[in-house]
């Protein structure tokens, strides 16, 4: 199995633990990833607010590069990248005027995007292409006794849910159970973490993250598993601010891929629990 890989800016920056843990896990499962040549920022939620045409064109440059590479499937682990690349595909298919604008713009630099590639999320690939049976066979250290709150966030299932339910997704639940972990009942699994509002309007943004952390602890979770670099940042890096404003709610938030690495028995520098700010103690205790 081979996929084009679109890391996005966060996975090279504050969300590097996602890439550092996901790549070894995929390799361990026999999946080959080829990073898109000279990829550019997807535009995230910010660009669409300024200029939709340009936002689509910038995202489409990546789709065009993927098509040129001959790989039909693009793996996009970051929720914002996943959404924006998918949204661009939808716009190109649904709106002829947008397709024309973008096609002409890409043509000026000799690129072409016919919207033929599929933008996939790692959870989708793990469940539907690789299969949980294959995942199970790689487990050497089942996560027995570890209670996990699966946190999907907003943008991988909304608005273009292609591989999971929009209000009650279960792919990560099933994956975590396969790893041997106990998945807690967690009705907040798709509630917003505040996105970039944690920085721009802390009063509103931080409260949303605070509620998620508090409810995870209340429901007995040892750790929160996430799929999104912004969710991870908000729940982990802003904890001191949340503690100062309301109360300490110290529960670590890790990427699902880090938990996979743990269960596969991969070395510490491929599980990178040291990238978290909230102490990973509960995780270490569960692993002892």
């Amino acid at each position: 199995m081979k996929y084009a890989y679109f890391p996005g800016c966060s996975l090279k920056g504050t969300g590097r633990a996602y890439e550092e843990s996901l790549l070894p896990v995929m390799k361990h499962l026999g999946v080959e990833l080829q990073e898109l040549d000279d990829w550019n920022c997807c535009g995230a939620t910010a660009y669409m607010a300024v200029d939709e045409g340009k936002a689509c064109a910038a995202a489409a440059r990546n789709l065009a590069i993927a098509e040129k590479s001959g790989l039909q499937q693009i793996l996009a682990p970051c929720s914002a990248c996943y959404l924006v690349l998918n949204k661009t595909q939808h716009y190109l298919h649904e709106y002829p005027a947008m397709r024309q604008t973008v096609s002409r713009a890409l043509a000026t630099v000799g690129l072409r995007c016919d919207g033929s590639s599929a933008v996939r999320h790692p959870l989708d690939v793990l469940i539907n292409d690789i299969g949980l049976e294959a995942v199970k066979q790689k487990i050497t250290r089942p996560l027995k006794g570890l209670k996990v709150a699966p946190y999907y966030g907003c943008q991988i299932v909304r608005p273009y849910a292609t591989f999971d339910d929009q209000s009650n997704p279960t792919t990560m639940d099933r994956l975590l159970e396969t790893l041997g972990a106990t998945v807690i009942k967690w009705p907040l699994k798709t509630k917003c973490c505040g996105g970039s509002l944690t920085g721009t309007l802390p009063e509103a943004g931080l409260r949303l993250s605070y509620i998620l952390l508090k409810e995870a602890i209340k429901r007995g979770a040892d750790v929160i598993a996430t799929v999104c670099p912004l969710c991870q940042f908000n729940l982990d890096a802003y904890h001191p601010k949340i503690a100062a404003k309301w109360e300490p709610v110290p529960i670590p938030t890790v990427y699902f891929s880090q938990l996979m690495g743990l269960a596969f028995g991969l070395p510490a520098d491929q599980v990178v629990l040291n990238r978290g700010m909230v102490p990973m103690k509960p995780l270490a205790a569960a692993m002892a």
């Binding site: 907003c154 943008q155 608005p159 929009q166 798709t190 917003c192």
Partner: peptide, 10 residues
């Protein structure tokens, strides 16, 4: 203030 969580759209 819209954080683009798409809950309303869904």
């Amino acid at each position: 203030l819209c954080a683009s969580c798409y809950a309303c759209t869904t």
